[in-house]
Design a protein around this nucleic acid. Structure first.
Lengths: 120, 120
DNA sequence: CGGTATCCAGCGGGATACTG
DNA sequence: CAGTATCCCGCTGGATACCG
């Protein structure tokens, strides 16, 4: 099909691209769990509520690919791999912090709104 | 329940709940398009790059249900329906603004990081 | 420990057609 | 104009098993 007709401004596409970074289930959650410093794979797995091994691996790979997270392998036995935020990732976390805080603070408002909507 | 090494205390579940608000493809995009004031259905459709009629309807219903967006029907012919942010929605937009701005401003960084990753 | 590989269910979401 | 209804494909992501 024809490319999205958005000559209206270069920002439109950027915003869509940008929001895709946030549109996946785990990335922001993982990033926020790396705020306190480097974490090993299984530390993250325990910290990130409900994530599977597979999804943690995939999410970390994507974050690494995007330059958000850095992966370090320590060549010892047993294997030791740690993950930490890059400067880019730290910037993302900083930018996301208000949204995360707001969301956490307004879950009850939204739950209430839903209840009202579903009744009336 | 706060483990000493984990930032995930009782807030953990809330954060997951909260991030689910952001985890869908269109909501933040729509909300950001309502920042300048009320919009009619097809205005939004044109503004929100690439959205289908179905997904716009579904997304607006969810946002209305969550108390983020208010829907007003003007009983005229042809039908006229407008959508605007509620105070809650305005708060969400305010909280999301830094993330949206950051994302839009760092798309190129991320694209570059991907290119580097894919080569090496 | 830190992954891959494989299988598969669910649903997000696009295309299309119809309606008040 | 502002939706509903229907069909269906593909990707997300969960469960499980295996590997260096």
């Amino acid at each position: 099909m024809s490319a999205p007709h958005s000559p209206a401004g270069p920002e439109a596409c950027d915003v869509r691209e940008a929001l895709d970074l946030v549109t996946d289930k785990w990335s922001l959650y993982i990033v926020s769990n790396l705020s306190a410093g480097p974490r090993r794979f299984n530390e993250l797995r325990r910290a990130v509520n409900g994530i599977t091994q597979r999804m943690l691996t995939l999410s970390l790979r994507n974050l690494e690919r995007d330059g958000i997270v850095a992966r370090t392998v320590h060549e010892v036995m047993p294997p030791r791999v740690s993950y930490r935020l890059t400067p880019l990732g730290a910037g993302l976390l900083e930018a996301a912090a208000p949204l995360i805080a707001w969301s956490a603070g307004h879950v009850s408002d939204i739950t209430a709104a839903r209840a009202r909507y579903d009744v009336g």
